[in-house]
Design a protein around this nucleic acid. Sequence first.
DNA 1: CGGCATCCTCTTTGATACTG
DNA 2: CAGTATCAAAGAGGATGCCG
Lengths: 220, 220
Amino acid sequence: MYFSTTPAKLANVRSYNEYCAVAQALDVVGERWSLLIVRELLIRGPSRYTDLRSGLPGIATNLLAERLRELEQAGVVKRVEAPPPVATTLFDLTGRGRELEPVLNALGRWGGPLVQRPIGDNEFRSHWLALPLGLHLKDRRPHSRAQTIQVRSGEEPMIVEVNGGRINVRPGTADQPDLVLSGVASQVLGLMLHHLDVAEARKRGLKVEGDLGVLNRVQP
Amino acid sequence: MYFSTTPAKLANVRSYNEYCAVAQALDVVGERWSLLIVRELLIRGPSRYTDLRSGLPGIATNLLAERLRELEQAGVVKRVEAPPPVATTLFDLTGRGRELEPVLNALGRWGGPLVQRPIGDNEFRSHWLALPLGLHLKDRRPHSRAQTIQVRSGEEPMIVEVNGGRINVRPGTADQPDLVLSGVASQVLGLMLHHLDVAEARKRGLKVEGDLGVLNRVQP
DNA sequence: CGGCATCCTCTTTGATACTG
DNA sequence: CAGTATCAAAGAGGATGCCG
């Protein structure tokens, strides 16, 4: 007997078995949670297992491990060993994985209208703001000085930096933010995407403090 | 007792429960088969249940019925009653459903490289050709006269019409096709997408008959 | 026939507990 | 922290039956 110790339990992904690019794409990223894992890695960059878990509320830990293995095998995700200070394994997208961004964008655009009103009992994570802001907004005054908006919504404060035509969203607390928004995510988004004006947003409980000018600078 | 006869089995779709447009899009179209049903309706237009089944090899009939119901409830699919000559119910996309085309396109683009070589035991349906041809090709001589390519691959002959800048793919047999391609789908695609030249395609068993000029007219 | 519903089996998922 | 192990519940797949 000369068996490998690893059972032949690899590449055990269900397939549609179709000669069609859409179906074969779904063979790779169509299973439950897969595209949301890609979303997390797109927003956060290299991430620890635990951070992925916290960005995917409700995922079972065995499923996260399994999906990561499958995505790794498919060449979408890679493991990188972090240098000594942290000394843990990080998960990151491969180049091929990053090419899924247009898929996520298309889904995000299509899902936008669904997310308008009812926040209900939905889970929310601050860093998710990066997707709609990056997708729907541009800096319309690329030659003005950099400005920052401090957003306090969800578990973790976020900095929205508007500079040189780009919008950058990252966790953190700004020293001298031009504008501070505090409140639930739907109203932060409503205001920034100009579905709500300042008066309306305030009436609904959003705290808006500072220079409102930066809001006109970010436009669809 | 005053119960409705229909059990409260509606809107019984699993949700990620996230305040995130991508997650909410996936709540609607992320389940197995859903996006492939949308693909069928995008390619074929209004379709009978049985035609959908034949375009989704391997789907269980109860699953098709269930997905159609869910998609209908979500406003992606609608039922239309066909006029007396046929007198059957047809399924069609709503406007909202048709807006999923960019999602399918993004997935198709990403899946393109996966589909390059191995046709293997994959199922194939002729009308699937419409997706990659429409996605990757343009008519580079929009002012030339209309030309047609007859494709014989899979169960059903297809007409590829090149005219006025557009590429149109539909089932049927052309009277006087400018070019006839007969063989397996991977080589038809390889030739038309210019991954294979004519000599190479012929060597691999593709029958290429007629005016080769039309091939230069369709370009990425 | 076309359009499902039912029944059954098998696989996947989700929740929780446990481990190096 | 980064997973594996276990197990009940939900979902998928296949066969077949029903009804206009």
